[in-house]
Each structure stands twice: as structure tokens, then as C-alpha cells.
């Protein structure tokens, strides 16, 4: 049974122009419960992602609206967000995340900051108790927890499932929460519920975080979101070699797409993950679409009804 937490409007509306707030306040209970993203694109209609579908409204987002939202998101202090802007997003109180696009300013080939912001995607963090209910039985084999890779396209519920696992796994769990999304960390406080045996390392790059937690916290399980780099792969290999289980997520719409990524393929070839779970948005966001074992043989596949 899912207990979907409605997004806390008090945490979100202060970042939005009044005209956008009015539209959100006009949503019905179901729409509000399923609201995932608020997209503001310069000179384009307001777009809301509700239950996995993008809905467009008549309100055109002017440059002034975008500037106002940007000013509110950064608390008039865009300069203070430079470190976060290098990653293209700002983490907000409650674990919500504002993704930004505009003109990237490069320094030595890397993004130094973003200017001329032309789009904001406010992704709402929420705790869905029971979101991992469907996947949890597949995480164990003969009573033993398996390292698991959870794969889905963006917006299909990876983070929500990971968040519920951090809440319900009966192990000593450490979370590397690089973007403050899993625990809703903001200014050192976790605004989303976590299990009692959970430690959170907030704002730390995943590879460094995994190594740090291995040395310092003695975890049984390490949870992290959206792996994919070479450094992530090396840290995960080291952790698994130390006997720690890893539950991680990655972007992808199929196993083939995961294999196409060299660093993830390296982990799959090394048989690091005992399970690969594919999530999707049908019949609802976060639904399990398929389960694969270590050899990538199908254990379960959802059939369209």
C-alpha cells in the first residue's frame, strides 16, 4: 500500500511567481499528489509533470517570471550558488531540486557557471512510503541482500524508490546523498524520513563518499543515486570487494542502454550487481518493469494488460 506524501506547497510556492503559484493552487487533490515537476521555459507555456505526463498551461513564462523565480531560488544571491550551478541545479529546503539551463561559461573545458538562464525545472522531492514495496522482494536471494542497480529514465521514480529503501531496509545503511535529494538535506538537516540505522553523507561526490563511508561508518549497505562515472565504478568495485552491498540507481530505459555506458558495463561485466531492476511509469511512476539477475537473465517482466 502506497502512502504518497503530497508536496509541501509552503516549501515550493515561495520560489515561484504569483501567476504560477495560482495555477498550482488550482490543481485538484489527485493532480497535486502526483505533481512531479514544474517547468518554466522562457517564452513557453508553463508545463507541469503530473503522474509521468507533461501538461501545458495557457500561462506563458516571460523573462520577468523566470528572473523572479531565479531571484527567489537564489535568495538574491546567484553568486553564492556557483558551486551548485556547475552541476546545473540548486538544492532547496525539503530536498526539492531546481535544475537550470542557460548559457554555460566554461573554464579550462569545464562548466564554471551558468548565465542567461532560459529554463528552470523544479523537481519535487517527496517521500512515498511503500514505493519500494514492489522491488524489495527482489533484493534478496536466500535471505541475503544483493547489490542492486535500479535503472529508469528520468522522472520514473528511481530516487523515490531509493528513498523508501533508505527508510525500510533493516540494515546499517549509509547514504551518499550528493545532491541532497535522498534525505532532503538542507543546511545540515534531513527533511525526509529515514530509517533509524541510516547515516547520510550529504553533498559529497559519490566516489569519494563511498570511500569515506567505507573507512568511517562500517556500513552493511551503501545507497547512492545516479552513478555513471569511471570514479563511481572504481569506488563501487572497492566497496563490493570489502563485502559491502551497494544499491545504486542509473539513468536508462533498458538493459541495452545501461550496457552502452562503458563504466556501468564494466560493473555489470564484473557481476557486481546481483539484481538489475528496471522501473517505468506504467501503470504508475516507479512501477517495476523488469528484473534481471547477475547474468542479465530476465527474472520478471511486466506484461501490458
Amino acid at each position: 500500500m502506497l502512502a504518497v506524501q503530497k508536496p509541501d506547497l509552503k516549501q515550493i510556492l515561495p520560489y515561484l511567481p504569483d501567476a504560477v503559484s495560482d495555477i498550482i493552487l488550482g490543481l485538484n487533490e489527485h493532480q497535486l499528489r502526483d505533481l512531479q515537476e514544474i517547468r518554466l521555459r522562457s517564452d513557453r507555456p508553463l508545463s507541469l509533470r503530473i503522474g509521468g505526463r507533461e501538461e501545458r498551461f495557457a500561462l506563458i513564462i516571460s523573462t520577468e517570471y523566470l528572473q523572479q523565480s531565479l531571484r527567489l531560488l537564489s535568495a538574491n544571491s546567484f553568486y553564492a550558488m556557483e558551486e551548485q550551478l556547475k552541476n546545473g541545479f540548486i538544492t532547496l529546503a525539503g530536498g526539492h531540486r531546481a535544475g537550470l539551463v542557460g548559457r554555460a561559461v566554461l573554464k579550462e573545458g569545464k562548466i564554471a557557471t551558468l548565465t542567461d538562464i532560459s529554463g528552470i525545472n523544479l523537481r519535487l522531492a517527496r517521500f512515498v512510503k511503500g514505493a519500494a514495496g514492489e522491488v524489495k522482494p527482489y533484493l534478496y536471494e536466500k535471505g541475503e541482500l544483493l547489490s542492486t542497480l535500479i535503472v529508469s529514465p528520468p522522472g520514473a521514480g528511481k530516487t523515490t524508490v531509493l528513498r523508501d529503501l533508505a527508510y525500510c531496509l533493516p540494515h546499517t545503511v549509509s547514504v551518499v546523498d550528493e545532491r541532497g535529494e535522498l534525505a532532503g538535506s538542507f543546511n545540515g538537516r534531513h527533511s525526509l524520513p529515514l530509517g533509524e540505522g541510516v547515516d547520510v553523507l550529504d553533498g559529497c561526490p559519490k566516489a569519494e563518499g563511498i570511500n569515506l563511508l567505507l573507512r568511517s561508518m562500517g556500513p552493511e549497505v551503501i545507497l547512492c543515486d545516479e552513478i555513471g562515472s569511471k570514479a563511481d565504478a572504481e569506488a563501487i568495485l572497492a566497496a563490493v570487494a570489502s563485502g559491502v552491498k551497494i544499491i545504486a540507481s542509473a539513468h536508462g530505459g533498458s538493459v541495452e542502454q545501461v550496457i552502452d555506458k562503458p563504466d556501468l558495463a564494466r560493473l555489470l561485466n564484473a557481476k557486481v550487481f546481483g539484481r538489475l531492476l528496471l522501473l517505468g511509469v506504467r501503470p504508475r511512476v516507479g512501477s517495476l518493469q523488469a528484473v534481471y539477475n547477475q547474468s542479465l537473465s530476465v527474472l520478471y517482466e511486466r506484461r501490458d494488460e
Partner: peptide, 10 residues
């Protein structure tokens, strides 16, 4: 533009 540009410009 107070507060609304990068650190260098500010």
C-alpha cells in the same frame, strides 16, 4: 543586477 550575476561580476 545586485546579487543576480556571478561572483566575478558582483
Amino acid at each position: 543586477d545586485l546579487g543576480l550575476s556571478d561572483k566575478n561580476i558582483q
